[in-house]
């Protein structure tokens, strides 16, 4: 059964806490204040980076959201498999991002750091493929 986005993100953060606590602390420090509404197909979840933790919720007041990211599962797995770059996905509108440039850059930096860590661990690999 396909994993729901909120459950996936919560499990992802749990693995980060367990296996990469130092790196997670660094990411939280640099990304503090980001509240991202993540959409995957019709699945939605909010990622809130607070002072000391990352909270995954179903929703939050609209005025707190400063980044909106939307993509399909198909697009996500094309990017992960290297069949499509982020730029290509962005220009073909398969990957939609809304937010002010500074927050977007911080958000991008956060994701690249997370992905760099994730590729060193099979736990993340298996979790990501449960999203399929």
């Amino acid at each position: 059964m396909t994993l729901k986005l909120k459950k996936f993100l919560s499990d992802f953060i749990e693995i980060m806490k367990e296996d990469f606590p130092l790196q997670l602390r660094g990411i939280i420090k640099d990304a503090r204040g980001i509240t991202c509404l993540q959409t995957l197909d019709s699945d939605k979840a909010v990622i809130q980076i607070r002072k000391r933790e990352i909270i995954i919720t179903k929703g939050t007041p609209k005025n707190e959201i400063n980044v909106r990211v939307a993509l399909s599962r198909d697009c996500l797995f094309k990017i992960i498999a290297g069949k499509m770059t982020l730029a290509e996905a962005f220009y073909t509108k398969e990957f939609d991002v809304i937010g002010d440039p500074q927050t977007l850059l911080r958000c991008y930096d956060m994701w690249i750091r997370i992905i760099s860590i994730a590729r060193t661990s099979p736990r993340f690999h298996f979790l990501i493929y449960k999203l399929r």
Partner: peptide
Amino acid sequence: SVIPGITRLIYP
């Protein structure tokens, strides 16, 4: 070809 594909995401 480069494997794994995620390399392309990290180092475009």
